[in-house]
Design a protein around this nucleic acid. Structure first.
Length: 286
DNA sequence: CGGAGTGTTAGTCG
DNA sequence: CCGACTAACACTCC
């Protein structure tokens, strides 16, 4: 499900409630969703206190007082729900139709805290995972990821250099490639390309210098706007404060096939690019 | 009911 | 190394 703006929203919400909490125990109902060393997983949580909640690309990182980090990847349908002892939910991730409480049949990992609250990991399709590792290994684990697009690590020169390696593929495939830039998925790829007036199927080698420059600033603008909107949430998703991400209403192209382009009035078209459903304006995206 | 499609990505094969 | 394709899985929609 979630791309950078959604994961960042979840991170911010969890960062307000998790730090300082003491882990009482962690229950794993579906062992295959725990990746990596099971010994590390056990050691990570043993008498642990949560120190911080961070994010890299689309992964959340729980920093623990044991010197371990636990990565949580939500993939397509993962969801993290924090629930106070007798409290409301703080939800992050793909909403599940008709399921409004935790734990439920899709809850596969639960971290219980000594104050009676708990963090629940639900995942309908079971693609997501938790993975523990010593802090020292974090950097190595992320070595293959491109720059964070909302930081100064993401530069126009860097984007140009990254695209050199991807000349023969479509620009959409390149944006979805996490080694080029980290955190973009299907929604924000389509929206960034619409903002930059570039056709998703266009070969990277066909882009001009000016195209790449506009794309660069479009990516930053689109993602920043989405983070501000607390991301995109389908259906009836609400977070613990009763709010939902509002990017869906503001989205530019994604999911708008058949609707008129706000720039030229031509109807948005849907095709497949890089094996993913792709929406674009056939007139003003070249 | 069958098949396609779904906010992801690691792995495989040519 | 690059690029295209597939599998991992459950559910919804047509």
């Amino acid at each position: 499900m979630p791309e950078l703006p959604e994961v960042e929203t979840i991170r911010r919400d969890l960062a307000r409630v998790l730090p300082g909490l003491h882990v009482k125990r962690v229950v794993v109902r579906k062992p295959k969703l725990v990746q990596g060393s099971r010994a590390n997983f056990t050691k990570a949580f043993k008498r642990a206190r949560v120190v911080g909640v961070e994010r890299r690309a689309k992964q959340l990182i729980l920093l623990l007082s044991t010197g371990y980090a636990v990565l949580v990847h939500l993939k397509m349908t993962g969801q993290l729900v924090w629930k106070a002892k007798q409290g409301k939910l703080t939800v992050g991730g793909h909403p599940i139709a008709g399921v409004h409480d935790v734990p439920n049949k899709y809850t596969y990992v639960t971290a219980e805290f000594s104050n009676g609250s708990a963090l629940y990991f639900n995942d309908v399709r079971q693609f997501g995972y938790w993975k523990a590792m010593p802090l020292a290994e974090l950097e190595k684990h992320h070595a293959h990821l491109g720059p964070e697009p909302l930081t100064k690590d993401f530069t126009l020169a860097g984007l140009r250099a990254a695209l050199v390696r991807r000349k023969r593929t479509s620009i959409k495939a390149a944006l979805l490639d996490q080694t080029v830039v980290a955190g973009i998925g299907n929604i924000y790829a389509d929206d960034s390309l619409f903002a930059a007036r570039i056709k998703p199927a266009k070969k990277v080698s066909q882009l001009t210098q000016a195209d790449v420059a506009i794309l660069y600033s479009s990516i930053r603008k689109v993602l920043a706007k989405a983070v501000k909107a607390r991301g995109t949430s389908f259906n009836s998703y609400r977070d613990g404060l009763g709010r939902k991400g509002t990017y869906w209403e503001q989205r530019l192209a994604y999911g708008r096939a058949g609707e008129p382009c706000p720039r030229c009035g031509t109807l948005f078209k849907k095709t497949v690019v890089a094996q993913r459903g792709t929406t674009y304006c056939p007139k003003c995206q070249k």
